[in-house]
Amino acid sequence: MEILAEGQGELIGWHDPDENRQWILEHKSRELRDKRMTVREAVEQFVHDGDYIATGGFGHVRVPMALIYEIVRQGKRDLAMAGKTAVHDIDILIGAGCVTRVEVAYAFGHELRGLSPAGRRAVESGQCRVVAEISNGGYQWRFLAGMMGIPFIPSRNMLGTDTFARSACKIARDPWSGKPICLIPAAYPDVAMFHVPRCDRYGNAQIDGIIVEDFELARAARRVLVTAEEIVDEELVRAEPWRTVIPFYLVDAVCEVPYGAHPTQMPYLYFFDEEHIGRWLRLSRTPEGTGEYFREFVFETRDFSEYLERVGGVRKLTSLRRIERLQESMQAPWLEG
């Protein structure tokens, strides 16, 4: 195949397909076994300094925040992260100094809520490095190629742009049409993390609502950590198997964490905690405020349930449930500005 152009971005998370097959053969058990553990154990066991990590969900929706805060608590360092539209999670991890490299489709912003002070400060000062650019569509196709066990997937985006020039992709001449086509390299994150409404003890995880790119990401990643609102009986999964997005053989750890996506939204269960996100955006304007946030919500709490008490406990969580069910109107600090 004739290569017409090569992006200058750093290629992260790529393996030769045969090497990855061998890794899967040696490390991924097909045994139906109980994988329940605490969030602390899951992070201790499976997240290592220097890893390339990715989270499920999208933007401020269904993000595995209990795992994110635990990574901060354990002080993991030099992580690379998929900015596959990563907002609150990546901002927290950059602000805490855990993530120092990002491949960016969308990061350093909080959607309608504005830009991320912590993430931007880190990039503009050189403390956090953007290793490559890509698009949202391009990123999820990296995972598609990964889950298919192929080295790349062709696509028709990014052509003609600086997004391509700073990506890890190549442009080749398509042998059939003769037109230039973008080749997106496979990605195999070291660890992918998901929060789901229900999962059994073996890791059969079900999702309600859009699955975004969780299907592809879970199949491409080497290690998969799942937190669930509820660990349910296997029979409940088997009664409606079409709801299973992530089957057990992909999963390495299962943790029960009610409200584990807070302050992001859990579809059908609870709404974004705009007050808490607003507090982070306000405090993270300065390094001192950032430190204050982590002291109050991470280092002075032993685990996620203590964090939930600090963010407002039952009263707050009940209100978020009511807003999600349209029984209350939303409120947000950024609406008053």
């Binding site: 489709a105 990039v123 698009s135 569509g137 391009g138 028709r156 990014m158 700073r166």
Partner: peptide, 21 residues
């Protein structure tokens, strides 16, 4: 400059995809 920008913005998101497709 991309390497050490005066202001870092969020990036493409889905924009490059929409603008391409």
């Amino acid at each position: 400059d991309w390497r050490l920008p005066r202001a870092r913005l969020p990036g493409s998101g889905g924009a490059n995809d929409l603008g391409s497709f």
